[in-house]
Design a protein around this nucleic acid. Structure first.
Lengths: 311, 311
DNA sequence: GCGTAACATGAAACAAACGAATATTTCTCA
DNA sequence: TGAGAAATATTCGTTTGTTTCATGTTACGC
C-alpha cells in the first residue's frame, strides 16, 4: 500500500469541510485559518494523488474518493472520542455532579437533547437542571449551588472561566405578509413604529435593544410573553415584532407560520458561553459536557457559527 | 474533552510496542530509532497525563489505559487500511494479474495464508502460483512469465526492484536427545562430522553452506530430500542435521519431535525479498500484496524480524 | 559487582504545519 | 458583461513538531 501517512487530522479536516460546506467555514470550526485548511487539503490530495473535494460547487462537493474518506472519518472519529472519554474516566473516575443553570430561554431547545446524549456516555454523573429565572446565575457557581451556567455574559469574576460554545444569529420575526418581510434585512429604524415582543427580562439582557436599537436612539414599545410559542403567536397575529435565535424559530419558518429576516446587513450575532468554576475546568466530565454541547449543536442547530474566541 | 491531538501515528506506535514487546523492537518495525519511539511515547503519555506502558516488565506491559488505546488501534487501523485500499482501487482500478514464483521451499507455509487474505480484498486480481523449481526465477519477470518473485537473492538487474519482506532465522535441527541439543548455539565445526540434509538445490543457494560452513572450510556430506517432513523425519531418525527457517519447524518443536538451536552466537539470519518489475511498483494491487505478506507474516511467523533495509 | 540490553534524555538537524499577505478564481447582480 | 464580493490558492517567513545522534541511566543476569 502507499505509505500514505494519513492522520486523524486529515479525517477531521475532511469532515469539517463536508459539514461546513466550504474550506473557509471549515477553517472557522477547526480554529485554523483558511490558508491552513487549503494547504492541508492540498497536501492530502497530493499524497494520495487523488482529488477529494470539488471546489467549484457551492457548497463544495466531495469526489468519490472524498466520500470514501468521509465514511472512514464517520466510522473512526467517534470511536476515538469514545476512547479518549474512557481514558478520562480511568484517570478521574466517571462519577460527578453537574447542576446546570440556564440564563437563556430558548436554550432548552438544544440543551435537552445535548443532556440526553451526554447521559448516554456519563452514566455516573448526576445531571441536574436548575429551574426558574435567576437574576445572577453565575453567582450560583460561586455559592456552590450550580456547577455550570449557560450564559451570554462574560463579566470577569474571580474563580470563574467562560468557555465559548458558539455564535448564533438573532432573527427578526414578522408575519409572512408584513411589509418588512420583503426586505433582505432590517434596519434599526424599522423597529421604531412597532411593538417589540420579548421574554420578561430586563432591557440590558436583550441584545437587540442593547446593541442595535439603543445605539440608534430607538426605544420601542415592549410587550412581554413567557413562552416562545406565545411570542410567535403574537407576532403572527400582527401584535408586533420579535427577535429570537434562528434555531428557536426554524420549525415555524418551515411551515410558513412566520417570516424571519436578519437584523442589519451582517445579521445580529450573539455568543453563548458555559461558565464554570476555574477549579472544575480540569474535570473530564465537565469538559466533556461542553464538548458534547458543541458537537450536538453544530450537528442540529441552524444559524449558528463557531465561537470567535478559540476554545 | 481534552483536546488531545491524538493521531493515527500514536496508535500505530502503541500497536507496534504491544506486538514487538518493547520500544527497541517496535522502533525496528516502524523503521525509526529507539530514541524516536521513546520520545513519541513519552509525549503521548504526557499529553494524556496517563502512563500507557509499564517499561519495567519484559516484554513490556500495557497499563489499563494503554490497553484501551490498543483496542482503539485494533478497531481503527484496519479500517484505515481498508479505506486506503479502496482509494487505490478508485485510482488504478481493482483488476490485475499477479503470477507469483517462489524460490524458497518453505515459503509456501506463509504464502498460502497470505494469498488467502489478499484474495479477500482484491477479488478482481487474478492470482496465480507458478509451480516447479525455477533455475532463474527473477528471469521469469523479465520474460513476462511471472509478475512477482519471492527470493533471497538481490542481484541487481535492470528493470527489477527488490522489496524487502522480512529477516528470518535459520535454526539447526537435531534429534532432541542429540549431544548438540545441550548447547546454547552451534559452531560451524559442529557440522563437520554430520550429514547435512537439505532440499535438492545447488550449494550456493544454501545460506548455511555459503555463509557459515564454506567460510570455515567445512564441506559436510549432503543428503537431499524433497519435502520438509521428509527432512525432519531423517533428522529425527539420526541420519544427520538440517537447517530450516524457524517458522517451518515451530509445530514440530512444540511436540518435541526434534530440537532446534541457533547457528552461531547471533544466529544465522537470512532475508527475503519480493522482486517485481520496476514498471509494476506503482500498481496498487502489487504494492498491497507485499504489504499483506508483511502484515500477515509478522502476525503469524516465529523467528522473523523486520527487514534491515527500509521499505 | 560487572557487563549487557533496554530505555531515557538533551541538543541540534530536519521537516511539517501554520499564518499573513496577496493573488486568483468564482459567483452574483445589475 | 463588468464590478464587487466571497471563496480559494499561493508565496514566503515563522513556528512547531519530529527524528536522530550522542550519551546517560536503569534493570537484570551471571
Amino acid at each position: 500500500m502507499n505509505q500514505s501517512h494519513i492522520e486523524l487530522r486529515h479525517l477531521r479536516l475532511l469532515q469539517a469541510v463536508a459539514e461546513a460546506g466550504g474550506l473557509t467555514a471549515a477553517a472557522e470550526r477547526l480554529h485554523l485559518t483558511q490558508s491552513a485548511v487549503s494547504h492541508q487539503l492540498k497536501a492530502l490530495e497530493e499524497a494520495l494523488t487523488l482529488p477529494l473535494v470539488e471546489r467549484a460547487a457551492r457548497p463544495v462537493q466531495l469526489t468519490a474518493a472524498g466520500r470514501r474518506l468521509l465514511t472512514l472519518a464517520h466510522a473512526t472519529l467517534p470511536e476515538v472520542d469514545a476512547a479518549l472519554r474512557d481514558l478520562a474516566k480511568l484517570k478521574d473516575g466517571d462519577a460527578g455532579e453537574l447542576r446546570i443553570a440556564v440564563e437563556c430561554h430558548t436554550c432548552y431547545d438544544w440543551l435537552m437533547p445535548a443532556m440526553d446524549s451526554y447521559r448516554d456516555v456519563w452514566q455516573g454523573v448526576d445531571l441536574d437542571l436548575l429551574g426558574g429565572f435567576q437574576a445572577d446565575p453565575v453567582g450560583l457557581l460561586l455559592e456552590g449551588r450550580a456547577d455550570l451556567v449557560i450564559t451570554s455574559e462574560t463579566t470577569p469574576r474571580p474563580g470563574i472561566v467562560y468557555e465559548p460554545l458558539f455564535g448564533f444569529e438573532m432573527l427578526a420575526l414578522m408575519p409572512p405578509a408584513h411589509a418588512l418581510a420583503k426586505r433582505k434585512y432590517l434596519h434599526p429604524r424599522d423597529f421604531s413604529d412597532e411593538t417589540l415582543i420579548t421574554y420578561p427580562v430586563p432591557e440590558d439582557r436583550l441584545d437587540l435593544i442593547r446593541r442595535v436599537l439603543h445605539p440608534a436612539g430607538i426605544k420601542p414599545v415592549r410587550r412581554e410573553a413567557q413562552l416562545t410559542v406565545a411570542i410567535l403567536q403574537l407576532v403572527a397575529s400582527r401584535r408586533g415584532l420579535a427577535a429570537l435565535p434562528a434555531w428557536a424559530v426554524a420549525p415555524y419558518l418551515e411551515r410558513g407560520y412566520i417570516a424571519a429576516r436578519p437584523i442589519g446587513p451582517h445579521g445580529l450575532w450573539g455568543e453563548l458561553y458555559a461558565a464554570v468554576r476555574e477549579a472544575d475546568t480540569g474535570r473530564a466530565y465537565v469538559a466533556d459536557f461542553i464538548e458534547t454541547v458543541k458537537r450536538d449543536s453544530f450537528a442540529r442547530l441552524p444559524g449558528i457559527r463557531p465561537a470567535i474566541i478559540a476554545a
